[in-house]
Design a protein around this nucleic acid. Structure first.
Lengths: 402, 402
DNA sequence: AATAAATAAATAAATTAGATTTACATATTG
DNA sequence: CAATATGTAAATCTAATTTATTTATTTATT
């Protein structure tokens, strides 16, 4: 049995549970544990999940026969019968992810375990619906044509990571406001349904990044944390109880909208004080081509004179923002990632830590500041995880109302 | 069967579910639905909970025989057999709640439905462990002595609402720092165990207020909201998915620690800019006795000249704070309550709404600003709800690790 | 080195809990 | 009296646990 056929268990407080709901939950639980902890024997899973070995055995054999799980080499060296570690099968499940960004859109095919198998990119001056949907239509076709029939049948859906209220961005991206307004009534589900039967999930782009970090990066280490993704515009996501929390309208973790203060004490938002578009502007003022930031994502050493003060400012803002979010939820950690070279990321994290200790922390528990590891493509990879959570993994927190 | 005997279902993501877990969940679900929606027939519960009428029938009869539920008068006037609405039995479950505050501690006995049956108060210049534990010991004895044996057996626990890291308060309450440090190693469970066998839950005081508003007040109306309780020091609580979220160390909703800015742009916290202690100070400066605020909780009209500007400042701070919290979670609403007269509360809510619309709301969804209805005693009443959630109600979000 | 004992894993068979389904008695309206 | 909805009894079904068995290995003993 594959989970996700019935409505999953306990998605709202007002849902009773019956036997098939129990099975669905336990199947998802075992998949989630294997995802989170890596390959494991049934006996270990039974202990972790607090289920009887028999129950685990039955579920594992079923999932194995469906090709979701694969068995590893028996582990010897301990007293007793050798254990057989089970793992998520490499190609057991595939999914598509798309990120719509300031400068480019990405479409990719990823597997169960976060490996990107194919990737396509569209760049533009600013995003508009028509070219993006054309890119998706052609891109999906291209990607599917390179898959075997078996692989195609294992693609479980497509996730779209997109900024919240994109139609309000026209002045930020200096696009004609009138054209840009067409984003307002875009219905991704309906548009995608014109050329694919795959289930479609829409998720905030930075929240998608958070999902990627959560399952493939350092997210597993923490129960509750906030995630910053520094792109052209900064955004965020939050995790509670080991689950990404999207919020009732999908706008939880809108960390770009955190209040900040300009040099004259005027009210600003984090998006105005800690985003890469500020660095782009500085580059342009200094006669560089700001597009170099995007075409040379692994090496910004050519602009270090400008990058360095930008890191300083951004770190200061992130330190203040980190404490603001910790007043709402007592996050264990703050993860920072973005569309920049690793060296920049680590410098940013280091400086944020230093600024943090000078802040007023009365009544708060200091969070750990850590660097994310997924990096550049986090938003598209994370978008691809949405269909996985929908069908295979446990997500303690509710989905969006849809 | 009474729920809560086994570990309740799905408290962490890594918990498997078996039949007894299912029953426990469904029992709690029905109790929670009756709590939230009021008396209801089994057939309605079955529809709401998505359970078969048979299952609901069995569970209801069992809970009725245990005295947790009572049947109402048959409802006629519709086609078909009249339905019998079931309700939480008035005295079905009782619990104790204690709030430890700046100026006073309160101990009360409440029932399943939020009605306070007995209430005791201790006032002090500043809180210290020894007198408070003596008050609890004697108070519990007094309260129990006024209960019938049947009532005593129905008391399911005691909840303690206390500020976070009380030992750091010495300068705020001008107490000798040395004495005050004794709070640091206080173990409520151990202290209470010396004179009572009741299970003890410890919860942040403002979060307790939030729990009270959540089940007895306006909390039911919203899926996600933040709650401010304006006491001597402002505090808060948050609700996600219709459940109070305490956070992994019990410090979620530490809204008093939200960053704010003083007149010279210096960094402050909300606790410094939106608390009743500011008003106390103004009263003292103007020759009034600040204790009048606490002894005349329903009438502050004597100090309106001083109260009015305090309301203005507080409203402004709350408006800014409201947007800060909505950048972390897309709360539907902000609920405001406090230890002040209703007239003050409503003026504060009204002005907060007005300030809100002048704020920078890019990227955010404007929350509703609403007044809480539980008022003054919210923290103690809410503390008393902790044992109820522990044993009888569903709480989608995790409890503290303990 | 050979062998027995201990141990842990995995699973088959029997049992059990608790849900659903089906059937029916009941009380009411129209 | 027909229609309808509630509420419950009996039978059925699902998926868990418990108990018992097989198997592969390490460890201790001879």
């Amino acid at each position: 049995m594959v989970p996700g056929m019935d409505e999953p268990i306990i998605r709202t407080v007002s849902r009773g549970v019956n036997q098939s709901g129990v099975r669905d939950h336990n199947v998802r639980l075992l998949l989630t544990l294997l995802q989170r902890h890596g390959p494991m024997a049934g006996s270990d899973l039974a202990r972790l999940a607090n289920l009887s070995p028999q129950t685990v055995s039955i579920i594992l054999r079923e999932m194995e026969s469906e090709g979701l799980l694969a068995r590893g080499a028996p582990v010897k060296g301990k007293v007793g019968k050798p254990s057989i570690p089970m793992r998520l099968a490499e190609g057991g499940v595939l999914s598509l992810g798309c990120k719509i960004g300031r400068r480019s859109a990405v479409l990719l095919l990823a597997d169960f375990r976060g490996t990107v198998r194919q990737e396509l990119r569209l760049t533009y001056h600013y995003p508009m619906p028509e070219p993006i949907f054309a890119f998706l239509r052609d891109g999906i076709k291209t990607i599917l044509s390179k898959c075997s029939p078996a692989e195609r049948s294992r693609i479980c859906g497509i996730g779209i990571g997109t900024p919240f209220e994109l139609w309000k961005w026209s002045e930020l991206v200096d696009a004609p406001a009138k054209d840009f307004a067409s984003w307002r009534h875009v219905d991704y589900q309906a548009e995608l349904a014109r050329f694919t039967d795959l289930p479609v999930q829409v998720v905030n782009d930075a929240t998608a990044g958070c999902q990627a970090e959560h399952i493939y990066g350092r997210g597993k280490e923490f129960r509750d944390y906030a995630y910053f993704f520094i792109g052209a515009f900064v955004g965020g996501g939050i995790v509670l109880n080991h689950s990404v929390y999207q919020g009732h309208l999908g706008n939880a973790g809108a960390l770009g909208s955190l209040r900040s203060f300009g040099p004259q004490g005027e009210s600003q938002q984090l998006i105005d004080t800690a985003s890469i578009h500020l660095l782009e502007a500085r580059l342009a003022e200094n006669g560089h081509d700001p597009r170099d930031l995007w075409t040379q994502p692994q090496d910004w050493s050519g602009f270090s004179r400008l990058v360095d003060p930008w890191i300083g400012q951004t770190a200061q803002e992130l330190a203040k923002a980190s404490l603001s979010v910790c007043a709402v939820i007592d996050f264990e950690a703050i993860l920072i990632d973005g569309a920049f070279p690793d060296a920049v990321k680590h410098e940013l994290v280091e400086r944020t830590r230093r600024y943090l200790i000078n802040q007023d922390m009365r009544g708060l528990i200091a969070p750990q500041i850590e660097a994310g590891v997924v990096g550049f493509n986090a938003r598209a990879i994370g978008a691809a995880t949405s269909p996985l959570f929908e069908r295979y993994f446990l997500n303690g927190n509710l989905r969006l109302q849809s």
